[in-house]
Computed example of a mutant assay.
Amino acid sequence: MASRKDTLVRRASRVRRQIKAVANGRPRLSVHRSSKNIYAQIIDDVAGKTIAAASTLEADIKSALKTGADMAAAAAVGKLIAERASQAGVKDVVFDRGAFIYHGRVKALAEAAREGGLNF
């Protein structure tokens, strides 16, 4: 029987493979959530570089939030990553949820990023 980690790695690689098939050169918005924080990066896979990043560990977000592990924190990170992407000149991205289902904090981050001006 496969361990939980093996299952998560297999699911994340399956999602990433599907994303690369439809990306058409667009950078991907990669999301990672832990039990205490949430992180987002915009990655250019062609160049292999991170264009923009945001997380609940940053001082300005951390001081404004009660915890880094709720929907309000995810929405704040989504707005911040959209703002930083627009400063970097990125408007269209592909959403990479990794091994996480599109629900709860991941969904809140995605919706806040869309409201901030990212298209995906």
Rank of each mutant, 00 (worst) to 15 (best):
V46Q: 14
I38Y: 03
T56I: 06
Y39P: 03
R33D: 02
Q41V: 06
L57T: 14
A47E: 15
I51R: 05
I43K: 03
R28C: 02
T56W: 02
D44S: 10
G25E: 09
D44R: 00
I43A: 11
R28K: 09
D45P: 03
V22D: 10
T50L: 08
I42S: 00
R26G: 04
T50A: 09
A52N: 06
G25F: 08
D45T: 07
G48Q: 10
V31R: 01
G48D: 08
S30T: 14
G25A: 09
N24Q: 14
S55Y: 07
I51K: 09
A23N: 08
N37P: 00
A47R: 15
V31P: 01
S35A: 14
V22L: 12
G25Q: 11
R26W: 03
A54Q: 00
L29I: 02
D45I: 10
A47V: 08
A53I: 12
A53P: 03
V22T: 14
I43L: 07
T56P: 03
A52Y: 03
R33V: 01
I51G: 11
G48K: 04
D45L: 07
Y39A: 06
Y39W: 10
K49Y: 04
G48V: 11
S35F: 13
A54D: 07
D44M: 09
T50D: 11
S30N: 13
I38H: 02
V31T: 12
Y39L: 08
P27F: 05
